[in-house]
């Protein structure tokens, strides 16, 4: 079961990285979301898959018994919401970028870091032969 889940996570990672490498920012964003999902699943798996009872303390009992591991769940819960916020932020950025530049391709958004522009060579000229 665990092995199969690990393989499935690997598949999601593969798809997400493939989308991540796309030129289109929207596809990159989808890759980003899938990547987050796969990481959440990886955390769940790394916390081991044991009993499937939710981590709720039974009425009358004082301690948790024979239930799923609560720790990765707490981590994943916040990770989902944070990832959601980040995705939303990125989506707004993509929209604004499209509004300003008319493209959703990362390669065409060259204004912040121009690729082709070459700065003039800063090599020093020959040394002065005559001392001042």
């Amino acid at each position: 079961m665990e092995t199969l889940l690990a393989i499935a996570i690997g598949a999601v990672v593969t798809a997400s990285v493939y989308l991540f490498l796309s030129r289109d920012l929207l596809r990159m964003l989808i890759g980003f979301i899938l990547f987050g999902t796969s990481v959440n699943l990886a955390i769940l798996l790394a916390g081991r898959i044991g009993p499937i009872r939710p981590p709720l303390v039974d009425p009358g009992a004082a301690a948790l018994e024979a239930a799923a591991n609560p720790l990765p769940q707490a981590l994943i819960l916040t990770a989902i919401v944070i990832g959601f916020g980040l995705t939303a932020f990125a989506l707004v950025l993509v929209l604004k970028g499209h509004e300003a530049l008319g493209t959703t391709s990362a390669e065409d958004m060259g204004e912040a870091e121009p690729v082709a522009a070459t700065a003039p060579s800063t090599a020093l000229p020959a040394p002065h032969r005559k001392a001042a």
């Binding site: 092995t3 690990a6 990672v13 593969t14 798809a15 490498l21 081991r48």
Partner: peptide, 19 residues
Amino acid sequence: AVIAAATGLATTLLLLAVL
């Protein structure tokens, strides 16, 4: 695709190693 597959494979193997 090669890079993506390598990353996916690395993830799976890493998880199996953790398990």
